[in-house]
Amino acid sequence: MRELTKREFLELSLKGALILTAGGLVDLPRPSGAQSIPPYLSPSERGALRAMAARLIPQDSDPGFLELELGSLMETMMRVTPETRPLVPLGLKGLDESARAMFHKEFVGLAPAQQDEILRALEGGTASGEAWKALPSSRFFRLVRMFTVGLYYSHSTARRMIAYPGPGQPHGYPDYADLNWS
């Protein structure tokens, strides 16, 4: 007999939200209530987050993060993960503080090369901004990166792009040692 902790329940809601929005990334039943989760970022915060995700996984000859329409799903996941939830608005505040310090403009209004320069500063922990006193910029960078790459490389389109066939179970990969190189 298994009982859920509050934390586990939130986790399950998270996964439910995932299915809800992505439509079949994971084959799980949809928990009730997941649909009613409202967005929690302001329009400008949302714009900054998506602009950041677009640089983390840009469009090239293949679609990037935004082209796979994963923006709202990422926001939902951040919203329902209690450990993450308060960090994102704070980090996005810091992102714009750093952008203004470096280029006198908000992050969304900058050229891709300038945005990359800011992200490198966040990543290296050298970015300036009040917010980074409470939340190290490298930790915020890594957090957003984790959500971005986790969602992107779980998406069926991205999996096709990289020739990953998906789950091995229930049969596994009995041919795991048959490389046939010489």
């Binding site: 996984i57 990166r145 984790m146 991205a158 999996r159 792009m161 990953y164």
Partner: peptide, 25 residues
């Protein structure tokens, strides 16, 4: 590693990450 694990532990992002992951298999 699976693709998410590979992308995550590489620590890469942007074009460099996509360049590596394009050859994932």
């Amino acid at each position: 590693f699976g693709p998410v694990g590979m992308a995550t532990i590489s620590g890469l992002w942007g074009e460099e990450l996509k360049g590596l992951m394009r050859h994932y298999d």
